[in-house]
Amino acid sequence: MRLLEPLYATAMRLTRNRADAEDLVQDTFVKALRFEDRFTPGTNLKAWLFTILHNTWKNRLRGAAREPVDVDSERVEEASAQAGATDGSVGVETPERILLRSTLDADVKAALDDMPEAFRQAVWLRDVEEFSYAEMAEMLGVPVGTVMSRISRGRRMLARKLRGATHG
């Protein structure tokens, strides 16, 4: 099953630990098989599976009350924007090519894992999995405008973190 790798990679970024990621993928897989008659052949199987993955994760968080689910809160977004702004003063002139060359996959994963969930999810789904804004809106159950705003803030946050990482 060729979608297992991207599902697991995404689960790792959502849960940030291997045991939870494995459970999440397995639950997603079992649900997909149970509800396979709800999938319309010819539509996007990957988007359908990712929607199940995200819903399963959301339900788990709700059940465990590990993290607030209302990630749309302006406060969360403002707080993280400000947190980023304070460490954004170093190395502003860094050329992107140097950053690209000096950044390791592990740096990127660590920077992503350090971001609030809503932004981590948004940049991952857009730039790694390459879903459209509309697909993401459906998957995450939020308006397209919210999706775009999360991608924007998430990307800027990530750039600042990576710049910080390469400059020690």
């Binding site: 992107e96 950053l99 690209l100 950044t103 990127v108 940049v123 991952w124 730039d127 790694v128 924007s152 998430g154 990307r155 800027r156 990530l158 750039a159 990576l162």
Partner: peptide, 8 residues
Amino acid sequence: EQIARIVL
């Protein structure tokens, strides 16, 4: 935004 997009 461009830098993060390119890196990812």
